[in-house]
Each structure stands twice: as C-alpha cells, then as structure tokens.
Nucleic acid binder design. Sequence first.
DNA 1: CACTGGAATGTAACCGGTTACATTTGTAAT
DNA 2: ATTACAAATGTAACCGGTTACATTCCAGTG
Lengths: 347, 347
Amino acid sequence: MKDAPKSVTIRWLAQQAGVSVATVSRTLRHPDTVAPQTREKILKLVNRHQFVPDGRAATFSSKRTGVVGLIVPTISNSIYAEFTEAIQSRLQAADLSLLIANANYSAGTERDIIRKLIESRVEGVILTGYKRDAALYDLLRHYRIPFVVTWSTSPKASVPAISFDNRAAAAEATEMLIKLGHQRIGLICGIASINDRAAQRLEAYRSVLARYKIPFDPEIVSEQPFEIEVSSEAASRLITMKNPPTALFCANDIQALGALFACQRLKIRVPNDISIIGFDDLPIVRVVSPPLSSVHVPAKRMGHAAADAMIDAARKNIPVKSQIVGTELIMRGSTMPIAPPRSRSKS
Amino acid sequence: MKDAPKSVTIRWLAQQAGVSVATVSRTLRHPDTVAPQTREKILKLVNRHQFVPDGRAATFSSKRTGVVGLIVPTISNSIYAEFTEAIQSRLQAADLSLLIANANYSAGTERDIIRKLIESRVEGVILTGYKRDAALYDLLRHYRIPFVVTWSTSPKASVPAISFDNRAAAAEATEMLIKLGHQRIGLICGIASINDRAAQRLEAYRSVLARYKIPFDPEIVSEQPFEIEVSSEAASRLITMKNPPTALFCANDIQALGALFACQRLKIRVPNDISIIGFDDLPIVRVVSPPLSSVHVPAKRMGHAAADAMIDAARKNIPVKSQIVGTELIMRGSTMPIAPPRSRSKS
DNA sequence: CACTGGAATGTAACCGGTTACATTTGTAAT
DNA sequence: ATTACAAATGTAACCGGTTACATTCCAGTG
C-alpha cells in the first residue's frame, strides 16, 4: 500500500485505487461523471495524500491557464491598491486568478514581465499607461493575448483602453484654479518622460494656461518621483521662492500631500496663502486639515471594467472595447478664491 | 516556408530550420553548445516569428519553475511596498521571479492562494504573519516547498520566521510613553483576532502597563481595520471622551496618522495636549507636522533576508533558519513629557 | 434472446518543451 | 590509413495532467 511515492501523481493514485488515470482526473475535474462509490474511494486517497494536482500539467492540456496578469508601475502608491482589489474581486468571481507584477516605472522591467506573462500563457494582460515599445503590443497580439490599457488612453485605435481622460481631468482642475482668480499656478507632477499620465496632465495644464493667456513659467513646474519626501521638498522650493505661486496643482495626491505638509512646516496657510488641488482622491486627503480638493479618479470602476473586459475576452472571445470612465473634481477645503490685493480687501 | 502554424512551437521551428527539436531547444537554453552557424539560422527564425517558449512546458521537464510566491495581507498599506520591492530586487538578481498575491486579511483567501501556489509548484513561499491553519504548513512541507514567515514570529520552532520582535518593539514604545510620565495611554491597533502582529503588540502594551501597575482600561483601546478614515474616527472618539488619554500608542502608522489628523481637526495640540507614537515609520510620518515618533521596522532588511532564505532554499536546498531583525524607536516631534495637570489650555 | 443505448471506466494520444543517450561528423595523432 | 576523441546534432523518453474515443457492462425493450 505505502509504496513510497517520490511524488504523488494521478497515475500513482490511480494505481492505489485500482482505477485508471482518467477516472482520477475525472473525479477531480468532473465529479458527477464518476460513480459515487468510485468517487468516494478516490477522494479519500486524494485527501489522505494531500494531493494537489500540478497546475502546469493541468492547464497544459486544457489550454486554459485561468490567469490574468496585471502590471502596475508601483505598489507604493495606494491608488493602485483599490484598483487592484477591484480587478481581483471581479476575476475571482469569474474563477480567474490575478498575477500582480510591479514594473517599478522601468520600461525594461515591464518588458521582462510581459515576456514572462506570455511564457506562462496568461489569458489576459491589464497594463498601466499606453506608452511602450510597439513591439510589445505586437507580441501580445501575436500570441492572441487580450490586453487593455488603463489609467490613460492611447491615440492608437488598435490599443484598447479603459481609462478616464487625464487631459480633461487635469484641465478641469487647472481651469478651476483660474476661475478662482489664480494667475500664478504651480504644477507638481510625475516625471513626464517615464509616465504618460503625468505627461498628459502636464500637457493639459499648459494648454489651459495658454487658452487663458497665462504665461507658462517652467520655474513653477516641478516633475518629481512619487515619493512624499521628495515631493514635499520640491513643494517647499516652489512655495519659498521670491515670487511664489498662489495655487498649486499637484497631478497626484502623494505630491499634494507633500505640498500640504510643506506648507504646514513652513507655516503657510492653506488655502488662505495658497490653494492646492490634488489628483486621485485618496482616502487620506479627506482627513487631513484642510481636506484636499482633488480629482476623483474612478479606480474601482476602471478596475471592474478592465476585469470584465478580460473575462469577456478570455471566455467569450469578445474583443476589448475602449471605454472612458468619468472623473470628478471634488472641491474641499484646500482651495479658495485668491485673496484680493490688500487695497480692496479690508472691507 | 509559410506553413501557417496554428501555434509556433520548437517542433515547428525545427522543421522550418531543418534541424531537430533538441537543437532548437539548445539554441535557446544553452546557446554555446550549438554551432554558431546553426545558432544564427535558428535565432533568425525565432525572431522572425516572435517565438516565446511555453514556460509551463519548459518548467515542466526541468522541474524548476523559478517562481517564489509572496502573500501579503493587503496592498493598501505602503509598508508592504518597500518590503515587496526588497524581495523583488533580491530575487531578480538570482533570476527568480516573484508572484505577488493579496490575501486581503482573509484566511479563506489565503488558503486558496497557497493552494494555487502549490499547484503552480512555486519554489518558495513568503508568508506574512504566523497564525494560520496548521494544515497549510503541513501542505507546504508535504510538497517540500520552502516557506518563511515574516512580520511576526511563530512560537513553533518548526515554522521558520524572519521577522522583528513585535512584542519587544511595542513594549519599548509603550514604556517610552510611561517614562515620559504618561499614565493614561490609549491604544489603537489592528484587529487582533485576524492579525497576529496587532495581537502581539496589544499583548505587549498590556503587559507593560501591568508591569508599571497601570490599570488596563478597555475604554481607551480600539481595534480597527487599517483604513485612515475609520482610524481617524476611532481616534476622535478616544480624544474627545470625558477622561481622554494623554498619550496614544498607535500600533500602525496609518492609525497614527489618522490620530494626528483627528487632533488637527479637533484643534488638539500634538504633542502638547497629547503624545502620539506610531509603528512602521512610513516615509510620510517624517513630513507631517509634527513629525511622528514611530517604531522603525526593518522592512527592507527583512525582505532581503527572506528573499535570500528562499534563494538558498530553492537553489542549494539550505533549510530556512529563523532570524530576528531589530527595530528602532525613533523619537520625533509628536511626543513630549506629560504636561502638568492644568495645561489643557482653554484660550 | 438479441438488440439498443446509456453509464462507467479504460486506453492512449497529446500538450510543448528538456535532456539523457545515441549517432554522425570532423580533426588530429599515431 | 587507422584510431581516438571531441564537437554537433538527432532520437525519443519523459514531465503530469486532460480528454477523445473505445470498451465494458447492464437495464430496458421488442
């Protein structure tokens, strides 16, 4: 009975149970097709030996790996947490599993990850941002792996995206500051050369300024990695310059928080001395003082939609359709109309 | 030449190149063992057809999947980001890849994940926390998958852990508050029943109080999920009660931040009216006002050590040895000696 | 009793690589 | 020329499941 199995396989189990491998496989995969009596006997063996079938072998023949890959640029920013969880819950319900990978804002790392995902023959890939070597898209298409870009939209129709409109959202925020009377508006955003979301938001900021005939001043624009300490330092510099901005648009809440905390350290009042608008609407911005105005991004809806698209593509072979989900500028306590010049103010 | 391949495989490539499958496989796996001329011919084909070998098939015969699984309880808390990145960089250098999974503080989800990891025959598993059904440890052992517990240590010697000492660290923080003269010390921590780190920190808090003969008051102890909004609400309640604590130990920086922001909203001065000590030493606590005192946890070193252990176990079959890495209580501006009784200023 | 059809089970091909071992080819030494 | 050996390549088994198809068995029917 106890023929020391080097490793438990269905073949070995079949032999122990005195049945064929097919019966064991069926017991695990389609229990209703085997006689209850046989089934019980096999299941008892399976449990006794804590048998966990080899997934590689299993997906190998059946052609379905049941895995969807997600590539995020960082796991430090909790905005991706909500997104990831939304995806995960949807996939789980569809009996697919999610493989989370962190590209660390590195194109090279991302390339390696995509290759690995193809190697493991995932049934779908959810990407962050659209800007990457076209060869990678080709590769995914060549292997008929459905993919979808999130968090930004590609100008190419051949690259399906489920995202919000970064430009419109950033434009709305910038315009709001202008409508509040601000003319000198600083910008802190991610590094545009490696982050297409940052690039699009920066672009929108510039074009709104242009539309309102406000000169673009590179002195008050700062591209920074998303680390709170460096963002806060960058904000400090903007705030303490000779001719400081009266408002700050931070294209990311991490940076908005960095700016707020810099103001707190420097005893600069928000919003009285300077207005701040963030981007992402992280839960934390609601509890700081003052609560930050921010562009709410539909991370959850975007995640659900992306997951659904992958499910439909994997299961029903439905091509992924691009989709825009809305953002909402939420005004809280970190913004106010610009203080009128002293002369007119003291009424 | 263009015999429409339903899918590109080494067999098909071999046929195209007029060589055997072994030669193709060798070209990709051990290029130096094939004649340069043959190699070039095959590589050209590989590139032309964007061939990406099936990883399942590859690891299937070679017995090495080259994957290590990491299970974190949440991806929202950025403390796990630094940890994850430390692991990732070490594994990458050893040519192993990391599969990140999010258990969402659910034992059931974690069980499913562990099963999936075993199904995909990972070569190592890094777990967060020690408290889980013993059957899961048995399963991992049964499949000879090296594993290591992080972020807390198990009382069982059979469960190797690479962690810091939660009890000692929490005790040090609590004791520090007592030494600053505080006698009424509130605690906000995670939900002990589902989080063994929170449980151990709570336990340490109680035992230090006992040692100093300070009565334990459940009224000023609050177990909360790690969401900044609910933590902040919980802190508000503690702070505004009739007989509020003069110090708060938050066994997690998210909660410490929640508490700080609650104080800011309620115009309670930190540290003058209330001292706060956090836990984790997130980058953000250094930039808020006042900067928070916090227990620095060696997430990076812990990650490196855990990854190294997995590498050694997978590659050299070295059993995982338990290890304790140190924490450090870092005092910043959120703590001060208790103010004399009448100091809660009404002005 | 022979026949039909469905349920239960078995047989073996197959998925796509890897690699031990066998074979062929080429080169140098005797 | 013969032998010896290394380099290059080929053959085929193997990894561990899944499943199409074949087979066996039995109840029900005419």
